[in-house]
């Protein structure tokens, strides 16, 4: 075989770098949406590569639900220091305190939907014209239709039926004042690709992704971590399990799985044998079959 071809991870990397550079060239004020999860860590790593030897030329934006894993915040602050870039925090707690949103009530209350308002406010207040996200098309069926450059109207809304076509590698980021874009450089990566690449590049990730002992409660078919925000229901009991997380989000709804995988090698092997999607452990997606599409239309990540 010819030596002039890339393996698939190199091709995905090259595509992501291309998209990140297009964002920089086409927008005035882009940011990386940083959640502390592996996908946004990956995007940040790719941005480092895209602009080397320059620093990443734009800030990171963290939409903070207030329901964090302490490890996530520590990780975020260390990374910011290492990169020497600016951090912008949009606080859901502040949105609640200022009456922009009301906290959900009831057993399955989450701050997930509230993040939309906080995010859109942060975008507007900071005059952000492109928010780069770690969304992947394999995560969820509504995400499967996302463009690399995805238009949002001046209400921050997505119109999946009226998207701009993307041909070859030509990306159209033109927009009117008040509108913005979401850019998804790792659209074409699967969970497996992400882990294989993290392992190959030896990218630092929060310890939460590796198996560790933790106090948890069995709820909605997964292990929800005990935290100051968790209200125990009747019949629920706290147990200590060896678990790890496949995604990281709001600590009140991010379920872990029982696992012995405490190295990247073991995680890759475990993910390869997985029978459930990673979002299968997130109760926010279980609400209805089109839960993600409905949230995305309104401006969700």
């Amino acid at each position: 075989m010819s030596k002039y071809y890339l393996n698939y991870l190199d091709e995905l990397e090259s595509e992501a770098i291309y998209i990140l550079r297009e964002v920089w060239a086409q927008f005035q004020n882009p940011v990386i949406l940083f959640s502390g999860g592996k996908d946004s860590i990956l995007v940040t790593h790719l941005a480092k590569k895209a602009f080397y030897p320059s620093k990443i030329p734009f800030p990171l934006l963290h939409v903070d639900t207030g329901h964090n894993f302490p490890e996530t915040i520590q990780f975020r602050d260390d990374l910011i220091k290492e990169l020497g870039v600016q951090l912008i925090v949009g606080s859901v707690q502040e949105s609640i305190d200022t009456g922009r949103v009301a906290e959900e009530k009831g057993k399955n209350a989450t701050r997930n939907a509230l993040q939309i308002t906080t995010l859109l406010d942060a975008i507007e207040n900071n005059k952000i014209d492109c928010a780069i996200g770690g969304g992947r098309r394999d995560e969820e069926k509504a995400r499967a239709k996302e463009r690399f450059f995805s238009h949002r109207d001046d209400f921050g809304q997505w119109d999946p039926k009226n998207q701009r076509p993307e041909l070859w590698n030509l990306l159209n980021g033109k927009h009117f004042e008040g509108e913005h874009f979401r850019a998804f450089p790792i659209s074409n990566w699967t969970e497996m690709d992400v882990w294989n690449y993290i392992k190959r590049e030896d990218i630092k990730i929060p310890s939460l992704y590796l198996a560790h002992q933790r106090e948890v409660v069995w709820r909605n078919d997964s292990w929800i971590p005990v935290s100051e925000f968790l209200k125990l229901e009747e019949n629920e009991k706290i147990e200590t399990k060896k678990i790890r997380f496949r995604t990281l989000g709001d600590i009140t709804i991010t379920g872990g799985i029982e696992s012995e995988a405490n190295t990247l090698e073991k995680i890759v092997a475990e993910v390869a044998a997985m029978k459930q999607t990673e979002r299968g452990n997130r109760s926010d997606d279980k609400r209805s079959e089109t839960a993600m599409e409905d949230r995305k239309r309104q401006g969700y990540f």
């Binding site: 394999d138 069926k141 509504a142 499967a144 239709k145 039926k161 699967t190 599409e293």
Partner: peptide, 23 residues
């Protein structure tokens, strides 16, 4: 499995480009 968006599932047709992955 591939007919992702709500309208498509309701009408039973594919109206946009849907991307899928396998290895």
């Amino acid at each position: 499995f591939t007919d992702g968006l709500r309208d498509e599932r309701e009408q039973g047709i594919t109206i946009d480009v849907a991307y899928r992955y396998f290895t």
